[in-house]
């Protein structure tokens, strides 16, 4: 049995494509709901019947283990039928276009579609062609909204708030959808956001997104409450952005020495998977007092349950049918 969350609250969106544009109370609504799902997930019997008979498809055009698994668990804990579609098995390799894929899936009357794609904007393109709720699980260098939400939930549960915190986002901001989503979310919630990276790993005019720009860890981490490390995305790099990973670790890899300037109890986050010895020292990453990295993984499932719950409310509660268009 489960204590059913208040189903009268809604998000005024059909899809979750990004954090940009979400308002603080909407973000809080998701996080509040996710708090409840954390409790559900910790019980011996984790499964509820909220999405029984509903179909969730994980459509991943890019390799992923943790995000896909997290969404799969989230769907299953809510009772949904979850199908994973990997790119290799799909028709995309046979030359089918993204829009063809969308139309095909749409004809199967899904309730929710979780999509990851290597091109920025690809999830938005797909969402225009389907009737079901679409959740962006990462599109190119654009956004990864559920990652930012789970990061926010992690911070909020540990420190009780987001407002007023100094958050330093460090590393490969240029190739990071996680960084963009986090910047939008933290700004919306009133945190002070810094980015810390060599200029070659910062996108042009990043300061216009409302962040303080630092090129040295010493100044960037000063008095930070949260140090959010980013994965150096060597697989996305076309060309050379840093001279070597050795040099990168020396100047930008997080270790206890660099961490000294941050607040004494500053917490450390990483969206994973980590490159140990490149952007983060193993000692720091495994420090159970300061590292939130495993909390992030746990809370990821709860946040995704909350998002799935919210985005399917309209169709579950009768505003639109399975075939309906908003």
């Amino acid at each position: 049995m489960t204590d059913q969350p208040d189903q009268s609250l809604r998000l005024p969106y059909r899809h979750l494509l990004g954090i940009e544009g979400l308002r603080a109370h909407e973000i809080s609504l998701i996080l509040d709901l996710a708090d409840g799902y954390v409790e559900q997930s910790r019980r011996p019997m984790t499964k509820s019947a909220l999405l029984t008979g509903r179909t969730l498809v994980n459509l991943f055009f890019e390799n992923s283990t943790r995000t896909r698994t997290s969404f799969e668990l989230a769907g299953k804990r809510l009772g949904a039928d979850v199908i994973n579609m990997a790119v290799d098995a799909s028709s995309v390799k046979k030359g089918e276009t993204l829009i063809d894929t969308a139309m095909t899936l749409n004809a199967m009357h899904l309730d929710a579609l979780v999509v990851r794609h290597s091109d920025s904007g690809a999830v938005k393109l797909l969402s225009d062609k389907v009737n079901c709720a679409v959740i962006n699980a990462g599109d190119g260098n654009h956004e990864h909204p559920t990652q930012a939400l789970l990061d926010a939930l992690t911070i909020r549960r540990r420190l009780g708030r987001l407002e007023g915190l100094v958050v330093a986002i460090c590393g490969d901001v240029l190739h990071s959808r996680v960084a963009r989503s986090n910047i939008h979310l933290l700004n919306a919630m009133g945190a002070h956001v810094r980015v810390v990276a060599p200029p070659t790993l910062l996108p042009s005019q990043i300061e216009r997104l409302g962040v303080e720009v630092h090129h040295h860890m010493k100044t960037g981490l000063k008095d930070a409450d949260i140090v959010m490390m980013l994965r150096l995305q060597t697989e996305r790099m076309a060309g050379q952005y840093i001279p070597s990973t050795r040099e990168y670790f020396y100047f930008y890899g997080l270790d206890y020495e660099k961490l000294e300037v941050a607040k004494p109890n500053a917490l450390i986050m990483h969206p994973g998977p980590m490159n140990r010895g490149v952007e983060i020292d193993s000692e720091v990453a495994d420090d159970i007092k300061r590292s939130l990295i495993l909390d992030q993984v746990e809370l990821g499932v709860a946040v995704r349950m909350a998002v799935l719950d919210l985005l399917t409310r309209d169709r579950r509660l009768g505003n639109i049918g399975a075939e309906g268009v908003a």
Binding site: E20, S120, G121, D139, G140, N141, H142, E143, R177, R180, P203, S204, Q205, I206, R208, L209, A238, G239
Partner: peptide, 19 residues
Amino acid sequence: AEGGMMNGGEIATRLGLSG
């Protein structure tokens, strides 16, 4: 210009497109 898709700057940065 290699690999660029739109004008470099704030909008490209927001959209996650290389400028």
